[in-house]
C-alpha cells in the first residue's frame, strides 16, 4: 500500500530550477533514503511533500488524499507526516517534554494528562532519559535535541516520518545516537523517507536508495543494486562520498 506519492514535482526559485519533475512512491513500512550532492534539491523535495515549500507543479498524495489539491485541509494532512529538520528546530521556550506535548494538546486536542503520558512514552522510545525531560533545548546536546525533535514528530502518530539530513548539524560523535534511533524506528516498521549524506547508514537502513542530482532522480535501487550501479552519473557520485571506491565501501 502506497502511503506517500509524489508525481512530477517541479520547483523554481527565481531563475534556478531546483526540482525538475521528481516522482516518488513510498510504501507502508518502507524505508527509503534520498542521497545526492548539495544543491541536488533533496531538502526542497522533502519540504514539498508536506507543503512547507509549495511546488510550482506536480501532485502529492498522503494516505490517498491529495495535499496539493486546492481543497486540501493542509494542517490536518501535515499531522500525518512527521518532519525532522536538519536545523534542530526545537521550540526554544519549551522544555523537552513541552516540545513533545504542544502538538498533542494544541493540535490534537488531547488533555494535558494524556499528552504528558504519551510524551513520556515517546521520549523513552527515543532514549531520552527522565532527567532530561524538563530541560530546555539550550541545555541539551545536539544529539539529544535531535532525538527530542524525532519524539515531537513521532508523538503525533504520523503515517510517515521524513528526516531532512538529521545528523548534518551534529558532531560526528553525536550522529550515531540519532542514527541508531532512526534505525530502530525504521526496523519497527515506521515508514520513513530519509535525506542523508551518511552512505554507510543508508546501506544499513534503506530498503531503497534514491539518488538525486540537479533536481532530478538519476537512479536508485536497493543498497545491493546501488553498490553495483551501472549508471555512470550515479557511480561517480557514489565514488565521491565517504571514501568509496567504485561504489563499494573500503
Amino acid at each position: 500500500m502506497i502511503v506517500l506519492r509524489a508525481e512530477d514535482v517541479w520547483k523554481r526559485y527565481d531563475d534556478t530550477i531546483v526540482l525538475r519533475g521528481v516522482s516518488l512512491n513510498l510504501k507502508k513500512g518502507e524505508t527509503k533514503v534520498i542521497m545526492g550532492p548539495s544543491g541536488a534539491g533533496k531538502t526542497t523535495f522533502l519540504k514539498c511533500l508536506n507543503l512547507l515549500v509549495k511546488p510550482d507543479k506536480g501532485r502529492i498524495w498522503i494516505d490517498g488524499e491529495e495535499i496539493t489539491s486546492p481543497k486540501a485541509d493542509i494542517t490536518r494532512l501535515r499531522q500525518k507526516i512527521g518532519f525532522v529538520f536538519q536545523e534542530l528546530n526545537l521550540f526554544h521556550h519549551l522544555t523537552a517534554i513541552g516540545n513533545v506535548m504542544i502538538g498533542l494538546t494544541k493540535v490534537k486536542g488531547m488533555s494535558k494528562s494524556d499528552a504528558l503520558k504519551k510524551a513520556k512514552e515517546t521520549l523513552k522510545r527515543v532514549h531520552i532519559e527522565e532527567e532530561l525531560w524538563r530541560k530546555y533545548p539550550a541545555q541539551l546536546s545536539g544529539g539529544q535535541k535531535q532525538r527530542v525533535a524525532i519524539a515531537r514528530a513521532l508523538a503525533m502518530d504520523p503515517i510517515v516520518m521524513l528526516y531532512d539530513e538529521p545528523t548534518s548539524a551534529l558532531d560526528p560523535g553525536l550522529s550515531s545516537e540519532v542514527l541508531l534511533v532512526i534505525k530502530e524506528l525504521s526496523e519497527r516498521g515506521i515508514t520513513s523517507l530519509i535525506v542523508t549524506h551518511e552512505l554507510g547508514f543508508a546501506y544499513e537502513v534503506a530498503d531503497e536508495i534514491v539518488v538525486m542530482n540537479r533536481g532530478r532522480i538519476i537512479g536508485g535501487g536497493s543498497p545491493e543494486e546501488l553498490r553495483n550501479a551501472k549508471n555512470d552519473e550515479v557511480r561517480n557520485l557514489l565514488n565521491k562520498w565517504n571514501g568509496l571506491k567504485d561504489g563499494v565501501l573500503v
Partner: peptide
C-alpha cells in the same frame, strides 16, 4: 524561520503558531 516551519510541520494553524510558538518567544 525554523520555529515557524516546525510549528507548521506538526500541523499547527497560523493562529496556533503565532499564539503558542512565536509570541511567547
Amino acid at each position: 524561520q525554523g520555529q515557524s516551519l516546525a510549528a507548521k510541520a506538526i500541523g499547527m494553524t497560523k493562529l496556533q503558531e503565532v499564539l503558542y510558538i512565536i509570541l511567547p518567544q
